[in-house]
C-alpha cells in the first residue's frame, strides 16, 4: 500500500462524502418543489389522527415555519448524525420504517445480482466455447433481448408460468423460496444483460489481441486460453459495471416488489409517494445514494489492486519514454471512467 494509493483513496473518499451530501440536497430541492403545502395538509388530515400538540411538535421538529434554506440546513444536520426524521403518516421514526423493509430488499437485490452474474458468465462462456454452429448466434442475441423486455413483463410471465400454470409457488406467499427466486430472476435479467454485454465485448476483444494468438502459438488450447488468459482481463470491467448497476437493482425493486407482492423498500416508496410522506421519500432516496456511492467507492478502491496495469502515480511508462506533455492521467475514478453502455 504505497503513498500514492493512499492519496488516491483519500481523495476518492472525500469525493464520495461530497456526492452523498449533494445528493441529499438535490433530493430535498426536488421534493420541496412540490406545489402547495403537503406536509401540513397531511398532518391535518383527520385520518392520520394527529393531535394539535403533535402537529406543533412535528412542525417545530422539521422547522416547517422556517424558510426553505433553514429547513434544508436542519434536515441535513439531522441526516448527518443518522436522524432521518419522523414519518408524517404513521408518526414512527423513519429509521425504524426503513430498517423494517431493508433486509427483504437487500436479500432480493443480492439474489438478483447472483442470478445476473451466473447468467451473464454462462452466456459469455457459451459465446466463446460452444462450437459456432450450436447456437452461438442465439447466445449473442440474448443480452440485447434481455435489455428490451420490461422487467414487469418478465415478472408477470414468470408468475403466469411458474405460479399459475406449474404451481411452483403461490402469489399470496411472496417470501417463499421459489417466489424470491423468481423475483430475483425478473430483477436480475436486465442486469445480466449489461454484464454479459461487457463480458462478451471484452472476451471478443481479448481473443483478437495479439497475445492470444501468441499464447496459442505456445500450444495452448481454447479451454486453457479462455481460463488462463482471456477471462481475467475481460472480467475486470465487470467490477465497474456491477457497481454501476446497484442503482438499477434498487430502482427495479420498486416494480418487482409490486408485482410479486413483496414488502420492501419499493413498496415503502410507493406508499410514501401516494401519501406524500416526504420524510420517508427523502430518507429512502438519500440512503439509495449512499449505497450506490459506497459500493462504487469500494469498486474504485479495489480495482487498482486487481489490475496491474493501473498505475496511480503519474510517472511516465518507461524511464526512457518521451515525457510528452500529453500524458493521459491514469487515475480516473470509476464514476468518470468510460464504461461502454450496452
Amino acid at each position: 500500500m504505497n503513498a500514492s494509493y493512499l492519496r488516491f483513496a483519500g481523495r476518492r473518499l472525500l469525493q464520495a462524502v461530497v456526492v452523498v451530501l449533494l445528493a441529499y440536497v438535490f433530493t430535498f430541492v426536488v421534493i420541496s418543489v412540490l406545489p402547495g403545502d403537503p406536509v401540513t395538509n397531511t398532518l391535518r388530515n383527520p385520518e392520520n389522527g394527529f393531535t394539535e400538540e403533535e402537529i406543533a411538535r412535528i412542525v417545530a421538529y422539521y422547522g416547517l415555519d422556517q424558510p426553505v434554506v433553514v429547513q434544508l440546513w436542519q434536515s441535513l444536520s439531522h441526516f448527518v448524525v443518522g436522524d432521518l426524521g419522523v414519518s408524517l403518516r404513521s408518526n414512527l421514526p423513519v429509521t425504524r420504517l426503513v430498517a423494517e423493509v431493508v433486509p427483504s430488499t437487500l436479500a432480493l437485490a443480492a439474489s438478483a445480482l447472483a442470478v445476473a452474474l451466473v447468467l451473464a458468465f454462462a452466456v459469455a462462456y457459451g459465446t466463446q466455447n460452444l462450437p459456432r454452429r450450436y447456437g452461438q448466434g442465439v447466445l449473442r442475441a440474448l443480452p440485447s433481448l434481455f435489455l428490451s423486455v420490461p422487467a414487469f413483463v418478465v415478472g408477470l410471465l414468470l408468475i403466469q408460468v411458474f405460479a399459475f400454470q406449474l404451481g411452483l409457488f403461490r402469489v399470496i406467499e411472496p417470501d417463499g423460496a421459489w417466489a424470491t427466486f423468481f423475483a430475483a430472476v425478473a430483477l436480475g435479467i436486465p442486469v445480466s444483460a449489461q454484464v454479459a454485454e461487457v463480458l462478451i465485448t471484452g472476451l471478443d476483444h481479448e481473443s483478437r489481441q495479439e497475445y492470444a494468438a501468441v499464447a496459442r502459438s505456445r500450444g495452448l488450447g481454447q479451454a486453457r486460453l479462455f481460463a488462463k488468459h482471456l477471462l481475467k482481463p475481460s472480467s475486470l470491467p465487470v467490477v465497474t459495471v456491477v457497481a454501476l448497476t446497484v442503482g438499477e437493482l434498487l430502482g427495479g425493486a420498486l416494480i418487482i416488489e409490486t408485482i410479486f407482492g413483496r414488502t420492501g423498500v419499493g413498496s415503502l416508496v410507493q406508499r410514501s409517494v401516494s401519501t406524500q410522506d416526504l420524510p420517508v421519500l427523502q430518507a429512502v432516496v438519500s440512503l439509495a445514494a449512499v449505497v450506490f456511492v459506497v459500493v462504487n467507492l469500494l469498486a474504485d478502491l479495489v480495482y487498482p489492486l486487481l489490475d496491474p496495469r493501473v498505475r496511480l502515480d503519474r510517472a511516465p511508462r518507461k524511464a526512457a519514454g518521451q515525457p510528452g506533455p500529453e500524458q493521459p492521467t491514469p487515475e480516473q475514478p470509476i464514476l468518470e471512467r468510460q464504461v461502454s453502455v450496452p
Binding site: 445528493a23 438535490f26 433530493t27 438499477e248 420498486l254
Partner: peptide
C-alpha cells in the same frame, strides 16, 4: 460532482420522486 449526484440516485427512483 453534479453528474456524480445524478448518477448516484437510482434513475428509476429519481424518476418516481420527480414525477410524484
Amino acid at each position: 460532482r453534479v453528474v456524480d449526484v445524478l448518477l448516484a440516485i437510482p434513475s428509476f427512483l429519481l424518476a418516481v420522486v420527480i414525477v410524484s
